[in-house]
Amino acid sequence: MKYLTISVLLLTLLSCGSTQKVTNQLQTGNYIEAFNTSVAQLKKGKTKKSNQKQLPLLQEAYTKAADADMQRIKSLQKENSPENLKKIYGIYLNLDIRQDEVRALQPLYYEGKEMVFNFKDYTKDIANAKEQYSKSLYTDAMANLKGGQLEARKAYTLLEDLLYINPNYKTNLDDLLQQAKNKGSSFVYVTLANKVKTISKDSIKDVTRINSANFNNPWVLYHTKKDHKIRYDYQVDITFDKLTFIPEKTQQQTVPQEAKVQDGWKYQLDANGNVMKDDKGNDIKVPKYTVVRAEVALYQQNKSSKLEGTVTIKDVKKKTTLSTQPIVGEAKFQNTYGKYRGDQRAIDQKYYKALQSKAVPYPKDYEFVKYSISNFKQKVTALLSQQQF
C-alpha cells in the first residue's frame, strides 16, 4: 500500500510538471511546443484524472498555434521568394498534421462535455502552396541551368528538392537532373601505363577505379574508359615504373637473461648463529633468493616489395601539366618468434609473446605484388582527394 501511494504521488507530480510546462510555453508564445507537449501527455492516458488539466491547455495551444501560423503565412506572402514559398508549404502541412493529431485523440471530454475543435480543410491550400513552390523551384532551376558550372550545381539542388516534393511536376525532371549533374561536374579521365612486365593485366584492372564517394567533393566524376561525348576537364596518368623485392631474410639476436628469484626459505639467525624468535616465540623464516640465468634467441623473418611509379595530373582544357608526384606502394612481411634455453624464470615478460610464436612460411611473390599495388592505389586516392578539380 505504501508503494502504491508513492507511485500515485509520483505520477501526480509528473502530470503537474507537464501541465506547468505547457502553461509556461503558452505564456511565452511557444504555441506549437505547447501543443506537442500536451498531445504527448494525453497519449499516455487522455481519461486519467491527472491529465484533465491538459485538455483546456491543448485546445488553447491548438487554436493559438493555428492563428499564429495563418498570420505568418500572410507575412510570408508579401514576398513570393522561393524560400518563403517553401515555408508557406511547410506551414500548411503542419496545420493539417496538428488537426490529424487532435482527431486521433478524439473524443475528448472535459467536465462532462465533449470538446469541440475548429477544423479546416487545408487540401486546396496545400495543393496551391505546393504548386507555387514547385513552379518557383522549376523556374529557378531552368534559369540556373543556362549558366555555368556553379549555376548548374545550384540547378541540381533545386531539381532534387522538386523531385522530392513533387516528382510528377514535369515528365523530364530526371533528364534535367542528369543534365545539371553533367554540366556541374568536373570530369577526370584516369589512365594507367604499366611498364613492369611481371605485373599481369588481371592484377591492375581495379587500379584506375576511383571511388569518389569517399571524397568531400561529389562534383568530380572519374572515368577509366573515355567517353567521346564528354569533354574532360582533367586527366590523371598513373605509371608503374619499377617493382623490386627485398628477398626472404631471417635475422637472429641472442639476449642473455638474469634474475634474482625466490628459492624457498631459511631460518633467520642472530649474531651467535641461533634461530631468532618472533614475539610469539615462533622461529623466524625469511625468503631465500638465488640468481637464475637463461638465453633468449629472437628470430625475425622479413620480406618486402616496393612498387615505384608516378601520378601526373593535367588540365586538359588549358593543355598544361599541373603536377607530377612520385608514388611508392609497399608491402612488408615481418614475423618475430623466439626460443630459449636455461631457467624460464629469468626471462623478461616482454619476450613471452615472441616465445609463444613460431616460424611461418613466407608469403608468395604474387601476394607482395597484390599488396604493393593496393598500397599504391591508396596513396593515389589520397592524393586525388586533395585536388581542387
Results as ranks from 00 to 15, higher is better:
residue 5 T to W: 08
residue 7 S to V: 13
residue 8 V to M: 14
residue 13 L to H: 12
residue 15 S to D: 11
residue 23 T to A: 09
residue 24 N to T: 12
residue 25 Q to G: 01
residue 27 Q to A: 15
residue 30 N to E: 12
residue 33 E to I: 09
residue 39 V to R: 06
residue 39 V to G: 06
residue 40 A to G: 14
residue 44 K to D: 10
residue 52 Q to D: 02
residue 52 Q to E: 10
residue 55 L to T: 08
residue 60 E to R: 11
residue 62 Y to M: 06
residue 64 K to I: 07
residue 71 Q to P: 05
residue 72 R to V: 09
residue 74 K to V: 05
residue 75 S to C: 02
residue 75 S to W: 04
residue 76 L to N: 10
residue 76 L to M: 10
residue 78 K to P: 11
residue 79 E to Q: 13
residue 80 N to Y: 08
residue 80 N to P: 13
residue 81 S to I: 06
residue 89 Y to C: 00
residue 91 I to T: 01
residue 94 N to V: 06
residue 96 D to K: 11
residue 96 D to F: 06
residue 96 D to G: 04
residue 98 R to D: 11
residue 105 L to Q: 05
residue 114 E to P: 07
residue 116 V to T: 15
residue 117 F to N: 05
residue 118 N to P: 04
residue 119 F to E: 01
residue 123 T to M: 02
residue 124 K to N: 14
residue 131 E to I: 08
residue 133 Y to D: 03
residue 135 K to N: 15
residue 137 L to S: 00
residue 138 Y to R: 00
residue 141 A to I: 03
residue 143 A to Y: 07
residue 147 G to F: 04
residue 150 L to P: 04
residue 153 R to G: 06
residue 160 E to Y: 10
residue 161 D to E: 11
residue 164 Y to N: 04
residue 166 N to P: 00
residue 166 N to D: 10
residue 167 P to S: 14
residue 167 P to H: 11
residue 168 N to Q: 13
residue 168 N to A: 14
residue 174 D to A: 15
residue 175 D to N: 15
residue 180 A to H: 00
residue 186 S to F: 15
residue 186 S to E: 09
residue 187 F to C: 04
residue 188 V to G: 03
residue 190 V to F: 00
residue 191 T to A: 05
residue 194 N to C: 07
residue 195 K to S: 15
residue 199 I to N: 04
residue 199 I to E: 05
residue 202 D to S: 11
residue 202 D to N: 10
residue 203 S to R: 08
residue 204 I to E: 12
residue 205 K to M: 03
residue 208 T to V: 10
residue 217 N to M: 05
residue 218 P to C: 06
residue 219 W to E: 03
residue 220 V to R: 02
residue 220 V to F: 04
residue 222 Y to K: 00
residue 222 Y to P: 02
residue 226 K to F: 07
residue 231 R to H: 07
residue 232 Y to P: 01
residue 235 Q to A: 14
residue 235 Q to F: 05
residue 237 D to T: 07
residue 241 D to N: 15
residue 243 L to C: 03
residue 247 P to C: 06
residue 255 V to C: 01
residue 258 E to F: 02
residue 259 A to G: 02
residue 261 V to A: 06
residue 262 Q to V: 04
residue 264 G to I: 05
residue 265 W to V: 13
residue 271 A to Y: 07
residue 273 G to Q: 10
residue 274 N to T: 13
residue 274 N to D: 15
residue 276 M to C: 08
residue 278 D to G: 05
residue 283 D to P: 04
residue 290 T to V: 09
residue 292 V to N: 06
residue 295 E to W: 02
residue 296 V to T: 03
residue 297 A to L: 07
residue 297 A to K: 14
residue 300 Q to L: 08
residue 303 K to Q: 15
residue 305 S to H: 00
residue 308 E to R: 11
residue 308 E to C: 04
residue 308 E to W: 00
residue 310 T to R: 09
residue 312 T to H: 04
residue 317 K to Q: 12
residue 318 K to D: 03
residue 324 T to R: 09
residue 325 Q to T: 15
residue 325 Q to R: 14
residue 325 Q to S: 13
residue 329 G to M: 00
residue 330 E to W: 00
residue 342 G to Y: 08
residue 349 Q to L: 09
residue 350 K to H: 05
residue 350 K to M: 08
residue 353 K to W: 01
residue 360 V to W: 08
residue 361 P to K: 09
residue 361 P to Q: 09
residue 367 E to C: 05
residue 369 V to R: 13
residue 370 K to M: 07
residue 372 S to D: 03
residue 373 I to V: 14
residue 373 I to Q: 03
residue 374 S to W: 03
residue 375 N to K: 05
residue 376 F to D: 03
residue 378 Q to A: 09
residue 384 L to F: 08
residue 387 Q to E: 13
residue 388 Q to C: 06
residue 388 Q to R: 12
